[in-house]
Design a protein around this nucleic acid. Sequence first.
DNA 1: ACAATTGTTCAATAACTTTTGAACTAAGGA
DNA 2: TCCTTAGTTCAAAAGTTATTGAACAATTGT
Lengths: 118, 118
Amino acid sequence: MTLPHPTADQISLSNVLAVLGDPTRLAIVRYLASKEGVPLNCSQFLDLGSKTNLSYHLAKLREAGVTRTEVVGTSRLITLRRDDLNARFPGLLDSVIAAAVDDPALPAVGASEIEVRA
Amino acid sequence: MTLPHPTADQISLSNVLAVLGDPTRLAIVRYLASKEGVPLNCSQFLDLGSKTNLSYHLAKLREAGVTRTEVVGTSRLITLRRDDLNARFPGLLDSVIAAAVDDPALPAVGASEIEVRA
DNA sequence: ACAATTGTTCAATAACTTTTGAACTAAGGA
DNA sequence: TCCTTAGTTCAAAAGTTATTGAACAATTGT
């Protein structure tokens, strides 16, 4: 089973910007970027909203071509479509991520792990 | 008389992305970038919508910190806030403009001048 | 003073987007 | 098989954004 994704040339600039212009989704993208290489499933993001709501936001990211979602058993593994985005809009994703990294206004993923350090 | 603008540090990433994630506004920004140096007033953009509607979109761009609007007599001169945006989100505006330049999906400003060439 | 030009404001509406909860599907263990 | 885990779908409600037209304000040229 595979989910529908746009091909690289179907990715629309204004749609990508619109999709990234939401704090919840920007926080998801920032977290994906910070954990690149690590396979992430939807429940990692539960800090940002309800299961249903995340399903909605993650679908928006996938449909816009920002993320790729692979179905693996009962999980979905989510990754950034770095190469495709970079080919289509050079530098865009990198500058968005760089700006998002030090944006205190964005909700944090993993806020519940802060005390783990102690 | 001066219009309200956010200071550079009040400019919000997700708001800038959301504001740019609209084809009309992206077309305005693309046109502003293509005519940098030339003072542009609102009526240059009438190809993109009604006077009222442009007033709305141009206010969104100004309030998000993407443009600066100077009141000069009965006109408003609109410019991109390149320096402020670049200081805040390095590379972002440039990559958006570069991608917008060759985006056939965006509405064109100055479509009415196409036959002038013949 | 008058008219034209440039653009704003306001209220209404239309069109979308986000959020919710309940019901559901499908895979993986016990 | 039954239960749990992981996530989706659906319909409704809430909230937000875009578009419109009519009325307004301010400046400039005659």
